[in-house]
Design a protein around this nucleic acid. Structure first.
Length: 318
DNA sequence: ATGGTTTTTACTGCGTC
DNA sequence: GACGCGGTAAAAACCAT
């Protein structure tokens, strides 16, 4: 039963070769920062490109036939694939395909096979579970524009949760979501709990609860999200200049050194920094639009950005 | 459950285009 | 007059205890 639609991914489609370009700012070498999903200048730290997102298939099809032709169904074989769909069922009746009963010899053989198949099958219930979870993870990750490696990480987290029997009493969706949340943070491309909630089928409170649980049980170390890691995303949806974006980062670094930020929401800080940077570089933005893209209230932006500017002042004075 | 902290909501006043 | 911004008070959400 070979399915003609099953093809392996074609080897080596357009590998990402950008390493040799030079920084527009200072002509230094560009470096891929895998962790953040960014291309950064090695010299001045300027972020040239951020957050590559999954735009779906690289091919286009103009009619159904062509689509069949070009479509490579299924994920590439990685952590993200559960079992390739190769499971077996053995009938319980001691009969052959024609309904004749089997010899005792045959019967014993079938008995043994059933036993083993059953063993595999208990594993299968897990696999089934996994399959669904991986689907969810993939869906959410791509809705959030998270890079491949985050999905991988999320998958791994989910597998571990499954292996450690953390699932009973918790929904597959909940744990998948928590895995995505954790993975994104670990990878340095965090999404806020609100953003996560947007694409999940589960409520925020449950996500938070499950997340904490999973983190604790798995002994995962996830440090609080760095405000800076939100900057590129906000900056690009606001179409800010690279200069302003860089400014926002330095603002945050100063604030960090002065310890202004503990206890405050990283997203709020990032949003405020972005807004402040726009002000400092004379780029037109309003608190309203920043608050929109960052999903943070204007009030919070106001409060934070005052603090940021103060911190900046304090630093130059000292 | 409770209390403290942060964020949000809603509203008001001020200056400018 | 609408818009952007600043401030405030009270509510809601969050967190640790």
């Amino acid at each position: 039963m070979t399915d003609s639609r099953l093809r392996t991914r074609e080897a080596d489609e357009s590998t990402d070769e950008r390493a040799d370009e030079a920084c527009p700012e200072c002509a230094g070498n560009l470096v891929m920062d895998e962790e953040r999903g960014e291309t950064v200048c090695g010299e001045c730290g300027l972020v040239v490109e951020t957050d590559e997102i999954d735009r779906g298939p690289e091919w286009r099809a103009f009619d159904a036939a062509e689509k069949d032709e070009k479509s490579r169904v299924g994920a590439p074989t990685t952590n993200m694939m559960h079992d390739k769909g190769l499971s077996t069922n053995i009938d319980w009746r001691d009969q052959d395909a024609y309904g004749n009963s089997l010899s005792s010899n045959q019967r014993q053989k079938m008995q043994r096979l059933r036993k083993w198949n059953e063993r595999f099958r208990t594993r299968d219930s897990k696999e089934r579970n996994l399959k669904q979870a991986l689907g969810e993870i993939d869906r959410m990750a791509s809705a959030l524009g998270l890079p491949e490696n985050v999905r991988e990480t999320a998958s791994v987290i989910y597998r571990r949760a499954l292996d450690e029997d953390l699932l009973p009493g918790r929904s597959i969706e909940g744990v998948s979501t928590a895995a995505v949340y954790a993975a994104a943070r670990q990878a340095g491309v965090p999404r806020s709990l609100d953003e996560i909630t947007e694409v999940s089928r589960v409520e925020k409170s449950e996500i938070a609860r499950t997340y904490r649980y999973v983190i604790r049980e798995l002994g995962l170390e996830v440090q609080p999200a760095d405000p800076e890691s939100y900057v590129p995303r906000f900056a690009s949806s606001l179409e800010m200049s690279d200069e302003a974006e860089h400014r926002a980062r330095t603002l945050l670094q100063n604030a960090k050194e002065q310890g202004v930020h503990s206890g405050k929401s990283p997203v709020g800080l990032a949003a405020a920094a972005v807004y402040a940077a726009a002000l400092l570089t004379n780029e037109k933005t309003t608190q309203a639009v920043v608050s929109e893209v960052a999903d943070i209230s204007e009030v919070t932006i106001r409060n934070r950005y005052h603090e940021l500017l103060e911190a900046e002042q304090g630093l130059t004075a000292a």
